[in-house]
Design a protein around this nucleic acid. Structure first.
Lengths: 129, 129
DNA sequence: GGTTGCGTTGACGCCGGTGGCAAGGTTTAG
DNA sequence: CTAAACCTTGCCACCGGCGTCAACGCAACC
């Protein structure tokens, strides 16, 4: 399988696959003319990458999962390094959820006060009429 | 007041103040030698900008708040345009909270399954010993 | 032989708020 | 007079996952 076919089958672009390769995530062989050649296993790897990216992982975080898959595991999640990353990411997401919740509260209060202020001003204006 | 003093008083840098100005948020006068000259009101404006940036607003979103302050209001929040931006941002944050919650659940499940799988494997290994 | 379609590497663009540097002008203090 | 501290404009760098274009090589079909 060459890069175009893999890209299409994985639902991405050739550019993207080369980018993953430049970051050490995908490892194609080369045919005599220099074309990249991928086996079926790489399709799963690319799917794993895309799934993790969609969840918010960075390429560097994904490396352990790919290594885990390459080591023959049925899931990229089960190796110690992957679990460590999962734990870290979960903690990060929890942190972010907290901060975002605080932002939401502040935004909500700010909005409530602004509307209250506007209604008050509106009432005063009507009394003046 | 010149740019250095305002920067120090607002807890930011001269570079940043020039950037705000290039985006139409801060409006200094100029002295004879070309130096920027700010009055006291600009300090409040800069504080408003920094506060909104800290909450996650972009510079473009902040413009209405600054205009509102400049219009003589005690708060930058009370003008219709500001309220509209607040509403939009609140909706955006709610969306993001939903998505992040979904991510958290997926991460949690993924981690739980990985750990379960590891324990199972560990048990099988021990039985083999 | 020419066209078409795929492949290759390399490099720039984006977004957004800021840091940092260059090369100069001004003002003030010693 | 000079040094230091301030100001000016303008431009490059950053992060990260790509899109996109350039300029070229290879393959296959007419």
């Amino acid at each position: 399988m060459r890069i175009g076919e893999l890209a299409q089958r994985a639902g991405t672009s050739a550019r993207t696959l080369r980018y993953y390769e430049s970051h050490g995530l995908v490892r194609p062989g080369r045919s005599a003319n220099g074309y990249r050649v991928y086996d079926e296993a790489e399709l799963r790897v690319v799917h794993e990458i895309r799934a993790l990216l969609a969840v918010g992982f960075g390429l560097d975080d994904i490396r352990p999962f790919v290594a885990c898959l390459r080591a023959g595991n049925s899931s990229g999640d089960v190796c110690p390094d992957s679990v460590a990353v999962l734990r870290r990411k979960l903690a990060e997401v929890d942190d972010y959820l907290d901060r975002l919740g605080a932002v939401r509260r502040q935004l909500h209060d700010q909005l409530a006060r602004a509307i209250a202020h506007r209604e008050e001003t509106c009432l005063r204006t009507r009394r003046r009429d």
